[in-house]
Design a protein around this nucleic acid. Sequence first.
DNA 1: TTGTATGCGTTATCAG
DNA 2: CTGATAACGCATACAA
Lengths: 345, 345
Amino acid sequence: MKFEAVTIKDIAKALGLSTSTVSRALRDSYEISPETKRLVLEYSEKINYQPNPIALSLKEKRSRSIGIIVCEIANSFFSQIINGIESIAYDKGYNVIIAQSHESYDREVINVQYLASRSIDGLLVSVSSETQDLKHLKSLHERGFPIVFFDRIVDEMETHKVIVDNFKGAYEATEHLIKSGYKQIAALAGSEYLSITKERLKGYEQALTDNGLVYDEAYVKHCLHGGMLYNEVENALNQLLKLKKKPDAIIASADKLTTNCLRYLKKRKLKVPDDMGLVGFSNLDLTDLLSPSLSVVRQPAFEIGEVSTELLIKQIESKRGITDFERIVLPPQLLIRESSTKESV
Amino acid sequence: MKFEAVTIKDIAKALGLSTSTVSRALRDSYEISPETKRLVLEYSEKINYQPNPIALSLKEKRSRSIGIIVCEIANSFFSQIINGIESIAYDKGYNVIIAQSHESYDREVINVQYLASRSIDGLLVSVSSETQDLKHLKSLHERGFPIVFFDRIVDEMETHKVIVDNFKGAYEATEHLIKSGYKQIAALAGSEYLSITKERLKGYEQALTDNGLVYDEAYVKHCLHGGMLYNEVENALNQLLKLKKKPDAIIASADKLTTNCLRYLKKRKLKVPDDMGLVGFSNLDLTDLLSPSLSVVRQPAFEIGEVSTELLIKQIESKRGITDFERIVLPPQLLIRESSTKESV
DNA sequence: TTGTATGCGTTATCAG
DNA sequence: CTGATAACGCATACAA
């Protein structure tokens, strides 16, 4: 007992018409008589006819679906982005296929190939923190395949890009710590391969120097997996706390870095902000519960998803290739919890 | 400048062969000479030939993709399930398409229709908390379309079902509170339409009566949206705290109920467990950070995903219809934090 | 206004 | 061993 779908042929046979007539009637073509249209429409309704999108895709050489590649959907930042993507995509009749790299370059390559071979019409990509070699994406892009990068973008490819002003986010976060009285601010950063990491560190450095503090590489620690693994964060923080002049504050520049940093501080029974100042990048809606004194940099995730998708679909649907690619920079938001100033202790 | 894929035809033309020969060579058919095979394989490799899955789908009447319907991917329980689903699906060559209902019945119906019309081979469903009418799923199921329910299942449909032992989870959670010295335990429950809610409440009730406490409906509050909206939880808890005999403990029977309950208690400056005992269902990996004294019921989410997907794919790939459907019940895990006993105060 | 034929990319069937 | 042809479901150019 297998599921057999109704086709245009069945309708044609039942009504004594040709398939083309039925096809045209269903598409409400002007060349079909009202009478025939009514007949066809009524009958299709009755037997619950559903056009086969696969046949359509084959014919039209488009699948009306777009692929998304992110590191992890179980990350509030990315799941919010996905909600933004969906809202636009579904609105415009596109389906969405999500693949996770889990921060692994190999999985990213496999996913890209998999999605491309599944005949998606375009790709929304935020690269993994391991990614350096880009040939898996370049080869697609060179063949004119629509790709839009968001958040974790790639300099060497000419495409639409949607990012957050990471420099600004980190600058303001660092400055907030300085204004709160901290003198020795360390940076807990993600993979050094990522654009976002570099930009955030620049903001951090600039804020320090603008405020008369010295930038010292010893106070910058990278976590290749963006803090996904607790051990990474633990090692980094252990090293920071071993420095002759211990940091009195930390800026954690990613979602998981922030939560795992909190976990570490808690384990070591270090209180925020009494023992250690902290500002973290985080889109988790629970930060107020996690720590009463945690100021966070919040990213406009939903908007990133919306904007990226609009650009991608625009590119997909433009007949001639797009010549100039946009680079959209959205502002982050620094949410300050008052109790996080050092004076308030 | 449009992306033009290489087809079997191009290879045939270039090599002076017929398409059927090329097709067979690519599939390593025994009827093709080693020489020809080598030729074809080498050339396809060179020009990076990728078979068109859409043409394949049309021919084979299967898309090798399965649909997932959940309420929310930004919920650790469901994102863990999705990881489990992916791991099996990709392993078996299936693609996964995720749709979110956001706890809305209307969106669920739209998504089911959308996915079904996208020619997926099967559907993994966890219904929304609003869902009562099942005709959108029944009509598919009646036509022999493979559906597997997980977690939030539906009694009236004969399909594979994968669930957690909700009775047990709630029973043990409630008993833990009782053993910890609480006498007046309230239940913060999800939508009353959901199977999981009913089962959890049964476990709660049984634990009470087994331990000589009375079950009183006034101490049970439902949140239609499963705690997704803070207001829901706030209203429910406000009502509970207005009772002449206030509850001294709460069992929160879903992820979002737990976190929003914590948020409420914090707002009201009620400490756990001093002012209020609490055990929550939660798959969030941050519960230890959220509250130092929060025991949680953890669900085997990844496993749910794996098992459901195995069942679904088995059903998809079985030629004859499946006659007896399995109902798999996985055990939850009660994670006890020692400081949560009332005596420890 | 309607019908016939063709093609999208692939595989299966039947001939050679 | 290899090639020609039909078929999957649909839309459309071309005929009638």
